[in-house]
Amino acid sequence: MTRFAGGPSQSPGFLMWHATMSWQRTMTATLAPLGLTHVQFVLLACAWWLASTDEPPTQVRLAAQAGTDVKMTSDVVARLEGKGLVRRAAHPTDARAKVVTVTDEGAALARRAIEEVEAADAEFFAAVDTPALVTVLATLAASG
């Protein structure tokens, strides 16, 4: 006998899957007019934020902040570089590391995209108690 005898509609994991897919469709629709995929947005926004709080991050630090795979981060940052949104340069003291600097165009796009994503988030999550949801999601994220 399964734990969720009522079927998928009673399974937290299944419901989270559907909620996540719906939210991802919202993010895709929000970011497409800006010429960004969701992962490009996350990495650009994280690079911009990290640089505003400290020095420009390395790709490894950027991957850690975003929660993304280092190799995938490198590939996506290369695409962002091709769009003129970031620049990569050798780290001054670590020959293996690359430093990611957000260009002026990238910073402007990051600010605009963050505003668009925050507005889409506000609309998407309007039907729920957002502070309570954030607490639940933070707990789940910390456990994994």
Rank of each mutant, 00 (worst) to 15 (best):
A113F: 02
A89R: 14
A5C: 08
E123M: 07
P57M: 09
G82D: 06
L36Q: 06
R3G: 04
T30F: 00
A5D: 15
F124I: 01
A45S: 10
A120L: 14
V76N: 04
G7Y: 04
L31C: 00
P56E: 09
S143T: 13
G84S: 11
M16D: 05
S74N: 10
P92F: 08
R25S: 07
C46R: 09
V42Q: 01
P57V: 06
P33D: 14
T53A: 10
L15D: 11
V134S: 12
Q10N: 11
I114F: 09
D121Y: 11
V99K: 00
A126K: 14
K98D: 14
A63K: 08
L44E: 05
A32Q: 04
T37W: 03
S52Y: 05
A51K: 00
L85F: 09
G35S: 09
T28I: 07
L80N: 01
Q10T: 14
A108F: 11
M27W: 03
V42G: 02
G6P: 08
K71M: 15
R88T: 14
L133Y: 06
W48E: 07
E115S: 12
M1T: 15
T130H: 09
F4S: 05
K98I: 01
A90W: 04
A5M: 12
A138S: 12
S22E: 02
V102T: 10
M1W: 12
L85P: 13
T26A: 14
V42C: 02
G144R: 13
V117P: 06
E55K: 09
T93L: 05
W23S: 03
Q40W: 04
T58C: 10
K71L: 13
V100Q: 00
T130Y: 12
A120T: 02
A29E: 01
V70S: 14
M1I: 10
V128T: 11
L44K: 05
G84D: 14
D129T: 01
T101C: 05
P12M: 00
S22Y: 12
T101F: 08
G82E: 02
V77L: 02
P131S: 07
A122H: 15
E115G: 13
T73H: 02
R87W: 00
V42A: 07
A19R: 00
R96L: 13
D104I: 01
A19Y: 03
R96I: 05
V99P: 07
L137T: 15
V100N: 04
A63C: 15
P92W: 08
S52W: 06
A142D: 09
E116Q: 15
S74L: 06
D104G: 09
K71S: 10
Q24T: 13
K83Q: 10
P57E: 09
F4A: 09
H91F: 04
A47P: 05
P33Q: 13
W48M: 08
E123Y: 02
A66Y: 09
E115D: 12
